[in-house]
Amino acid sequence: MNSRLFKERILLGSLYGFTACGCLVLAVILILVFTKGGLAISTAFLFEEARNFGLEGGILYQIAGTLILMTGAALVCLPVALGSVLFQTEFLHSPKLRKIFRLVIYALNAVPTIIFGLIGYLFFGVFLEAGVSWMTGVLVLAVMILPTLHVSIHEAVESIPKHYREAGLALGLSPGQQMRAVILPQSLHGIVTGTLLGLARAAGETAAIMFTATAFSGVRLPQSWTEPVTTLQTHILVLAQEAANPVALTHAWGAGLVLLTLVFVLIAATLWIRSGLEMEAQR
């Protein structure tokens, strides 16, 4: 019995060990970003234009570019995702077609992001003649986050209790009225969490936009559809390649901290909404 207990202790200890190591690594990452990035952060850094190839000045237009691309992508994607989910759940009766639709969305979720960049550029950049521009970036990212929004909204719509729908039908609502009165309000949490997750995904993406939407210098806010922007992600990419220059690295960590904070706020918001939901469901 004693050896059994001993074995148990050893195993539990190793579990704690592995967990601690894993947590330690992840903690180190966060500490690195926050301490190294913290050194760069100041109001000037946040609200000044980058100068001398990012070695002086701040990251104002990089922040703006990231925000433009991510909100643009979400705004383009949301109606499409919402509409296609509603079509799938409300009008598509054939289980076979529904299954195909779901599989296709799963397949899209598996596509490596760099491929969105390649094909997206070909289609939006060359075929629709948007070139290397923020519009191309927005569209590429919109396609990229489609599965994120779709899955989240779909889950929410599916989880609406049956008797809610039946009540709507009993009142003689048309499909359009049914959507407005029952389905949209009841799946709002899915729409919002999906959008927030999509925003977070778009904000963190580099590969899909680095040769389709961004330029290195001379970029402020776009003044037409076909102009490139500059983003936090690509700014870090350029500065990271100057790793031997401590100033470049400090600025890269600073931009990284801002980017990470943005992504964390978005994800934390979804967690907050979800936890609020669980609490209310328990009541």
Binding site: A64, T71, L188, V192, T195, L196, L221, A269, E280
Partner: peptide, 21 residues
């Protein structure tokens, strides 16, 4: 209650973006 919270959150995000720009 829930949707009020949600709308508030979304509005904050959009407002923040707008102000920054």
């Amino acid at each position: 209650r829930f949707s009020r919270k949600v709308i508030l959150g979304l509005a904050l995000v959009l407002f923040g973006t707008g102000v920054f720009l």
